[in-house]
């Protein structure tokens, strides 16, 4: 992390690198039969635990904890799936094919089809292709993730100015980083920001997919995951 901090040269970006959460792993039930329900159960359990990680991570995004509790909730309720998808996409970048939900839970096209998540897989793959072409680095990933949180367009914001300040702070950090680290491409920050609509579209599709899983009722869902799916 120290090398990365020195490299980024921007205080906010360095801070975001430092507060990047540790990896979490899938915990499949070894006694469960190998089928689509087992895969989805393992995935939903992983997402539930990742949600706790995301909520704790958000507290360390500069300026977030200074917001009112209501605004913190509003941002997270709107952005959690975008944050989660961006992490999934970043982990999957080095892989030829497959979505790296965790190092021990990589879902390839066929598995996604079997569990009813093929449509979502294709959309996420489009996002992965985009970031792979851009050669998204870790500094950009952490900054975009914080921007997704701050730019969540929650309908229930009390202090619009505070959110705007947070967005401006992160935007400045990205521009500063790009100016210093990617001199050769003056349009790079724009290119990165232009990926955010696809990220939102993908997150909305993911929410729909997991709501379908809830409706089907075959997979046990944890309370926090259900709460966040209802809130979105």
């Amino acid at each position: 992390c120290c090398q990365s901090s020195k490299k980024s040269g921007n205080k906010i970006v360095s801070h975001l690198l430092l507060v990047e959460p540790d990896k979490i792993y899938a915990m499949a039930d070894p006694t469960a039969p190998e089928n689509d329900v087992k895969v989805l159960t393992t995935l939903c359990d992983l997402v539930d635990r990742e949600l706790v990680v995301i909520i704790n991570w958000a507290k360390h995004v500069p300026g977030f904890s200074a917001l009112s509790l209501g605004d913190q909730m509003g941002l997270l309720q709107s952005a959690w799936m975008e944050v989660l998808i961006l992490g999934l996409v970043f982990r999957s970048l080095p892989y030829e094919e497959g979505l790296v939900y965790a190092d021990n839970l990589v879902l390839e096209r066929e598995q996604c089809r079997v569990v009813g998540l093929l449509d979502l897989y294709c959309t996420i793959l489009q996002l992965i292709t985009k970031y792979r072409k851009l050669q998204l680095d870790k500094e950009e990933f952490v900054t975009l993730k914080a921007m997704a949180l701050a730019n969540s367009d929650s309908m229930s914001i009390e202090n619009v100015e505070a959110i705007q300040n947070l967005q401006d702070l992160l935007h400045e950090a990205l521009q500063d980083y790009e100016t210093n680290q990617h001199l050769a491409d003056p349009h790079r920050s724009g290119k990165l920001l232009m990926t955010l609509p696809l990220l939102r579209q993908t997150a909305n599709k993911a929410i729909q997919s997991f709501r379908r899983v809830v409706t089907e009722g075959k997979v046990p869902m944890h309370k926090l995951f259900l709460e966040m799916l209802e809130a979105k």
Partner: peptide, 20 residues
Amino acid sequence: KEKHKILHRLLQDSTSPVDL
């Protein structure tokens, strides 16, 4: 807030403000 009680509780748990 009552409807979203787990999120509410997690956010209130040892909040670590970051002042940069």
